[in-house]
Simulated assay, not measured.
Amino acid sequence: MRPQRVAIVTHSTAPRGGFVHALSLAEELHRQGADVRLVALGDPAAGLFRPTTVPHTILPGPSKIGTTLGERVFAAIDTLAGGLAGMAGGFDVVHAQDCIAARAAVRVRDAGTPVTVVRTVHHVDDFTTQALVDCQRQAVLEPDVVLVVSEQWRRIVRDEYGRRAEVVHNGVDPDRLPAPADGARAGLRDGIGAEGRFVFLGVGGVEPRKGSVHAFHALARLRREGVDAMLAVVGGHSFQDYAAYRAAALAELPGLGLTLGRDVVLAGTVTEEQLACWYHSADALCFPSVKEGWGLAVLEAMAAGLPVIASDLPVFGEYLEDGVSALLPPVADDVALARAMRSLVHDAALRERLVTG
């Protein structure tokens, strides 16, 4: 009996958590001998953000992207479904990593291709347009099998969607985050003007789900107390448009007594090698998310030996213990977040305990 042929499908090749997860999953399945192929929308000429040995197909993105989020989502579904339709006969299982991929895979299945559609729900976006709300709901209801990455999201999928889901926790390969070459750490810190200052690292860009404004407000409290700390933020490439939130958050900085480029540094999208260097060069991760499916950045930071401040979201409580493996101040509590940040700045022994705990 031949092994099942599996497609790992995602809507983008952008080096964010979702695609990094999809690529890593495909690579591990391939390493174990599975017949697997990664399929994603992107630029075939540009390829992937890093080399890989896993078989993969990059389908050209929509020719007409549209201006609204809804137009972009539905154009991506149409394009991905069209690409999958031409190759889905070569797969027994199509494993969708997001709502766009799930809707595209279901469309191919419903057109008569005998495939089993598996959907991993990493999190559910807070869409406000009814068409997108409905689209996302169908992306949970229509697949044959639903997986989630945490117990919290198993409960959410059960209570809000009426679907039974199996939990498959996320993981991180520490070999992806090696210590940088000699001098790289000092060079990176010098490049952002750290000059001996305590560097908090933010991962995921400036966006609502990451609680960016709370990090800014907490950092401002430290600055008013004379604590010489800064925040470096990496990432920010997203299918959704957070430009308004980002602009409003950054516009607050002067009134908070913070200077963009000095107290808050935006490094933008980085390569995986550069991300590893950031994890090894910062002094602590500041990750005050208000919503997460799992929080890959937390695991990545821990794998690199970086102490972590997150928030007391239920999902973090599934693998972190407050005061033992991380500091978990209440969600959206700027005062408590500042207190946790202050503790890490002043207490080297605490930083060490969090890393080894």
Results as ranks from 00 to 15, higher is better:
Val331Met: 03
Ser325Met: 09
Glu321Asn: 10
Ala332Thr: 04
Met302Phe: 11
Ala301Asp: 13
Glu318Cys: 06
Ala340Gln: 04
Leu313Ile: 06
Leu327Arg: 09
Ala336Asn: 04
Tyr319Arg: 08
Glu318Val: 11
Leu296Lys: 15
Ser325Gly: 03
Met341Val: 01
Asp322Val: 03
Val308Lys: 05
Val298Cys: 05
Leu299Tyr: 04
Leu337Trp: 01
Tyr319Met: 08
Phe316Thr: 08
Leu299Met: 12
Leu320Asn: 09
Asp322Gly: 03
Ala301Lys: 02
Gly317Lys: 07
Ala304Ile: 11
Leu344Thr: 12
Met341Ile: 02
Val324Cys: 13
Val331Pro: 05
Asp333Glu: 01
Val331Asp: 14
Ala303Met: 09
Ile309Asn: 03
Asp312Ser: 15
Val345Asp: 04
Gly317Val: 03
Ala326Tyr: 07
Gly295His: 05
Ala310Val: 03
Gly323His: 06
Leu296His: 14
Leu344Asn: 08
Ala304Gly: 12
Leu320Cys: 06
Val345Cys: 07
Pro330Thr: 14
Gly317Thr: 08
Val335Lys: 15
Ala326Cys: 11
Ser325Phe: 07
Asp322Trp: 04
Leu313Gln: 15
Ile309Leu: 07
Gly323Ser: 07
Ala303Val: 06
Leu299Ile: 03
Leu320Pro: 04
Pro329Thr: 05
Leu327Asp: 15
Gly295Tyr: 02
Arg342Val: 01
Leu344Met: 07
Met341Leu: 08
Ala340Tyr: 03
Leu306Pro: 00
Leu337Arg: 00
Ala332Cys: 06
Ala303His: 13
Asp334Ile: 00
Met341Glu: 01
Val315Arg: 15
Ile309Tyr: 05
Leu344Tyr: 07
Glu321Ile: 08
Asp333Ser: 02
Arg339Glu: 15
Ile309Phe: 02
Asp312Arg: 14
Arg339Thr: 14
Pro307Trp: 07
Leu337Phe: 01
Met302Ile: 11
Val324Ser: 09
Gly317Pro: 07
Glu300Thr: 13
Leu306Trp: 07
Val335Met: 11
Arg339Trp: 07
Ala310Ile: 04
Ala340Met: 03
Glu300Phe: 06
Ala338Asp: 02
Pro329Ser: 07
Leu306Gly: 01
Ser311Ile: 02
Ala338Glu: 01
Val324Leu: 08
Leu344Gln: 05
Val345Arg: 13
Leu296Asp: 10
Met341Tyr: 02
Gly305Pro: 06
Pro329Ile: 02
Arg342Cys: 03
Ala310Gly: 15
Val298Ala: 08
Leu344Arg: 14
Asp322Arg: 03
Gly305Val: 07
Gly317Met: 05
Ala301Cys: 09
Ala332Ile: 02
Leu327Val: 13
Val315Gly: 15
Pro307Asn: 10
Pro330Gly: 05
Asp333Lys: 01
Asp333Thr: 01
Glu300Tyr: 09
Val335His: 15
Ala326Ile: 10
Ala338Val: 00
Val308Asp: 12
Met302Leu: 11
Pro330Phe: 09
Ala303Cys: 11
Gly323Asp: 14
Ala338Gln: 04
Ile309Thr: 04
Gly323Gln: 10
Gly295Glu: 11
Met341Cys: 02
Val315Pro: 09
